[in-house]
Computed example of a mutant assay.
Amino acid sequence: MALLARDRGNPPLAFQMLPYPMLDDRNTTPSSHEITGIGIWDRAANLQGWQSLLGERAGIDEVDAYAAPARAEDLSGLPPTYLDVGELDLFRDENIAFANRLMQAGVPVELHVYPGGIHAGELLAPDAELSARIVGYRTDALTRALNTPPGTGR
C-alpha cells in the first residue's frame, strides 16, 4: 500500500508499521526453509498464502511489487518505517533484508528482531514478558509517529 501511495502521490503517508510482514512470494531465504511444521505461520502456510493471493503467478518473475513488496526495485520515498520480527519467524530473513534496503534507500527504519520470538507470538502468549516488550515497542513507535510533525522524519 505504501508503494502504491508513493507512486500515485496520494495519500501522503507519514509512517508505516510492519509487524512481521509477508513481503516476498519467492520463499528463497534460509528462514523460509527452516521454519516448518510448527503449527503457526510456517513454510506450508506461507506457500498457501501466496498461492491464495497470486495463484499460479506465485514465485515467478512477473509478480508485481505492489503484491510482493520485496520485489520493488526502488524503496526511496517511503515513509519512516517500524518493522519487527521474531528470530524464529519464517519472515525473519526477508524482513531484515527489506529493512536494510529501506535504510539504503534513505528511509528511516526502526527494526526489532526478537530472540526466541515466533510469528504472532505476542497474540498466542499475551502475558509473556516478550509479548509485553513487543507491544510496548510498537506502542512507543506509533506514539512517536503520531506526535511527529509531517515532513520532519523521526
Rank of each mutant, 00 (worst) to 15 (best):
A44F: 08
L78V: 06
E94S: 09
L78F: 07
R57C: 00
A99T: 00
W50N: 01
P80H: 07
L53M: 13
L18D: 03
V135I: 15
Y66I: 08
G106F: 02
F98C: 05
V85H: 03
V107H: 08
A141F: 03
D89F: 02
A132N: 06
G117P: 02
P12E: 09
S76W: 04
G153V: 12
G37V: 01
N27C: 14
H112Y: 15
R6I: 11
P19A: 08
D74L: 00
Q16W: 09
A67G: 12
N46P: 04
R92D: 01
H119K: 08
G9V: 09
V107S: 09
T29Y: 11
A105L: 10
G55T: 12
P69S: 05
R92C: 02
L23V: 05
A120Q: 11
Q16N: 07
P19D: 11
N100S: 13
P115V: 06
A141R: 02
L123Q: 15
N27T: 11
I134M: 11
A125P: 00
E122Y: 03
Y114D: 04
A125D: 13
P108H: 15
V113H: 03
N10I: 06
P11H: 14
D74A: 00
P19F: 04
A128P: 08
L146T: 11
D25K: 00
A99V: 06
R92E: 00
L18H: 01
N10E: 15
F91D: 01
Y66A: 08
I40M: 13
P30Y: 08
D127M: 10
R133L: 10
E110G: 03
E62N: 12
P19C: 12
P80I: 02
A44N: 10
N10F: 12
R43C: 01
P12W: 00
E34D: 13
I118T: 10
A97I: 09
L53G: 03
H112Q: 11
P19S: 12
A5R: 01
P150A: 14
A128V: 11
T81Y: 03
G153L: 12
H112F: 15
D74H: 09
L88V: 05
I60M: 11
W50R: 06
D93G: 10
T29S: 15
A132Q: 15
A68C: 10
L13D: 00
E56Q: 14
G39D: 09
A141K: 01
D25N: 04
D25T: 06
T148L: 10
A45E: 07
P19L: 09
P30L: 06
N95Y: 01
R6T: 03
L54A: 07
R154L: 13
N95V: 05
P108R: 15
R6D: 04
A5K: 02
D74R: 11
G9K: 14
R26K: 14
P80V: 03
P11C: 12
N100M: 07
L78E: 04
G59S: 08
N27F: 04
R26A: 13
Y66V: 06
A125G: 00
A44T: 13
D7S: 10
A99W: 02
R138F: 09
R8Y: 07
H119Q: 06
S32T: 15
L75P: 02
D84R: 02
D140K: 14
P79M: 10
D64A: 10
A72P: 04
S76E: 06
I134V: 15
A2L: 12
P108E: 12
D93Q: 11
T29H: 10
G151Y: 13
G116A: 10
L53N: 02
